[in-house]
């Protein structure tokens, strides 16, 4: 591999990794507060894509101006974030809260999560058809600049920038605010947090909303990069879950790191081993990391960063 090629694959790898990181945060936060793998998170991601698809189809823009492009992208973020947060909120209310109230065993939560995932995915298939839909990008996805002769497109800049902003925002939210303190307290010891006056239900609900917001937006970004379809959440969801585990499940910074790592591994596996080895190499990395660090790269710091 030449230096030139290295940069050619590094850039899409960073963009993909940033996306995985944002999705992985949703898995890791919910795990932090509930010790539950929310498998339906991949469908929250899909709902984000479909919501923007619906709005953009309604508006039906054609060659928008620069100002209009910015507005449309912001509208896309708002729609996807709102749809994702709403879905995650409803999901928690319908699929998990009733189980929690009845002190159901851990396994019941897992089955409920998988059931919700099937339901949402097939519902989308039923409503929107099982073909892939193309999301019209509200700007011309041209080259913005080159790094070492490797081109960087508008979309890649957008993905990385918004992911970084979201991750910084989330880090501040979790570590600096009262709500973040609540989340961390519940993650550390839900019972004690309850005794100390933390409203556990509210904290859990909010955790879902924040995770869903990020998941929905990631769905929008992903849809612009490829397409919208009822199964679009499956592979990115599984990979992001793996990323959360690689980084140390329950650890927000670990999820970011894990996402980036897997994105890069996938991107480089294409030229090194062939495109078909994409997932194999990602999961080989997962296994290698877990062999040497069973709690992930940064470890399960449940109490400290949610």
């Amino acid at each position: 591999m030449t230096v030139q090629e290295f940069w050619d694959y590094l850039i899409p790898g960073i963009a993909l990794g940033a996306l995985y990181a944002v999705i992985a945060i949703g898995y890791t936060m919910v795990y932090g507060v509930l010790q539950l793998i929310n498998f339906a998170h991949s469908e929250v991601f899909m709902v984000g894509g479909f919501a923007v698809l619906m709005v953009f189809t309604k508006i039906d823009f054609n060659d928008p101006s620069v100002g209009m492009s910015v507005l449309l992208v912001l509208l896309g973020f708002a729609t996807a974030g709102f749809a994702g947060a709403g879905t995650a909120f409803a999901l928690e209310k319908v699929a998990y809260r009733p189980l929690r109230k009845r002190n159901a065993p851990r396994l019941a939560f897992l089955i409920s999560a998988i059931g919700a995932s099937f339901l949402l995915s097939n519902l989308a298939g039923k409503l929107f058809g099982r073909n892939n839909h193309s999301l019209t990008i509200p700007f011309e996805n041209k080259k913005v600049f080159t790094v070492m002769n490797a081109q960087v497109t508008v979309l890649q800049v957008l993905i990385v920038c918004s992911a970084v902003i979201m991750m910084i925002g989330l880090d501040l939210l979790v570590n600096r605010t009262k709500m973040g303190a609540g989340i961390r307290a519940v993650a550390q010891d839900a019972e004690t947090a309850g005794l100390m006056g933390v409203d556990i239900d509210k904290v859990i609900s909010r955790t879902f909303i924040v995770g869903g917001l990020l998941g929905g937006i990631a769905g929008f970004l992903f849809a612009m990069n490829s397409s919208v379809g009822y199964t679009m959440g499956f592979f990115p969801g599984i990979t992001a879950f793996a990323a959360a585990v690689v980084g140390g499940i329950g650890n927000v910074r670990g999820a970011m790191l894990g996402g980036l790592l897997l994105g890069l591994v996938e991107s480089f596996s294409s030229p090194l081993f062939g495109e078909e080895w994409r997932y194999v190499s990602a999961f080989v990395v997962l296994i290698l990391v877990l062999m040497f660090r069973p709690t992930g790269i940064l470890g399960e710091r449940l109490g400290r960063t949610a």
């Binding site: 090629e5 790898g13 993909l16 990069n225 990115p236 030229p271 495109e275 078909e276």
Partner: peptide
């Protein structure tokens, strides 16, 4: 020869490979 399984989430690296 190259293979890209159906539903590859991101064709960017493959497209780059074709270019290179």
């Amino acid at each position: 020869s190259e293979s890209a399984p159906q539903k590859t989430p991101d064709y960017t690296s493959l497209a780059t490979k074709v270019k290179n």
